[in-house]
């Protein structure tokens, strides 16, 4: 089969209207910012560069290698695009790829296209950028930082995007949270390894052939701190929301019920808001999340501190 679709593209009908609409809105805003930034950075070059690279990502998704049991590993490309182009251009490129896949190849629905762009374009890119940049800074631009960062960025972009898909399905009431998150997360933990290995292979080739493209010493582009923080937030949010949602499916189930109500128009939107509570989160769970986020911040604070002192020493 020439064109193998990935399991990550949500078809129409699998997300509730509310979830689709919210994700469309978020996607439109982020995409607007990205288009503006890319326009400032690249000027008139942007159209040919973005268009051709989107075609390259699409074609690159066909490159495969055999994995046990007749299946094969594929590339999604969000991490590779982020590393080579920077986050804003990568968002634009991934949007173009996902858009054409939905519009022409029915790989993913049209009404849920906003969600698909959000998962593969925005989440994948933000998380990749956050991981890769952190590793680059930690390693001071050394080889191991590029490859380890590339692998982890690619792996995490797949896993986090899959968790986002599972959460969206659960919130839409289309799949029970505990099952969807475990299944999507589990499968993509493995699929992500393939993505990571291919990304490292590509980086190794480019490191040997055109090291300048990797922009190791280039200063981070404008607004990339925002992207870095965004990536950290999304990774943290999904990492903590997912186990919570799967251990307390009732909470999500409740949201899904409300969502289902909106679908069937049995109750109007405003009845949702007055006594908006999120049952299922006991204080204990809240405490776990807070502890987790604090821990994460501490770890990255230390990492940043180390990177900072190292940079000072070399300067």
């Amino acid at each position: 089969m020439i064109y193998a679709p990935a399991q990550m593209h949500i078809p129409d009908g699998f997300l509730s209207i509310l979830v689709s609409a919210i994700l469309w809105a978020v996607t439109a805003v982020v995409l607007g910012i990205a288009l503006k930034r890319v326009g400032q950075d690249l000027g008139e070059r942007q159209v040919p560069l973005m268009g051709v690279l989107a075609a390259a990502i699409f074609a690159g998704q066909m490159l495969n290698f055999p994995v046990a049991g007749g299946t094969s590993g594929h590339l999604m490309g969000a991490a590779l695009a982020t590393i080579l182009l920077g986050p804003w251009a990568a968002i634009v490129v991934m949007t173009t790829v996902v858009g054409v896949q939905a519009l022409v190849f029915q790989d993913g629905g049209l009404l849920v296209l906003g969600a698909n762009i959000f998962n593969m374009g925005i989440i994948g890119v933000l998380v990749s950028h956050f991981v890769y940049r952190s590793f680059l800074r930690l390693s001071g631009g050394k080889r191991w930082g590029i490859f380890a960062g590339g692998f982890l960025a690619a792996w995490l972009s797949i896993v986090v995007a899959a968790l986002a898909v599972a959460l969206q399905l659960a919130v839409s009431g289309r799949s029970p949270a505990n099952l969807a998150i475990a299944a999507m997360g589990g499968i993509h933990t493995l699929i992500g390894i393939g993505e990571g290995l291919i990304t490292v292979g590509a980086l190794a080739f480019l490191y040997a052939a055109r090291r300048d493209l990797l922009q190791i010493d280039a200063p981070a582009p404008k607004g990339s701190r925002m992207v870095w923080v965004g990536g950290l937030t999304i990774a943290a949010l999904l990492a903590f929301l997912s186990p919570l949602a799967s251990s307390h499916p009732d909470g999500l189930e409740w949201v899904a019920e409300q969502n289902g109500f909106i679908d069937t128009a049995q109750s109007s939107l405003y009845t949702l808001i007055p006594d908006y509570v999120f049952p299922g989160i006991s204080n204990e769970a809240l405490a776990t999340i807070v502890a987790g986020i604090v821990g994460l911040l501490l770890v990255f604070g230390v990492a940043l501190g180390v990177a900072h002192t190292r940079r000072k020493k070399t300067a």
Binding site: L63, L197, I198, T199, G201, F205
Partner: peptide
């Protein structure tokens, strides 16, 4: 190793696209 080869191909494709 096979994944690395596929990765090399992807990198090559990217370079050509650039």
């Amino acid at each position: 190793w096979q994944a690395r080869v596929a990765g090399g191909m992807a990198g090559n494709l990217f370079l050509r696209a650039f």
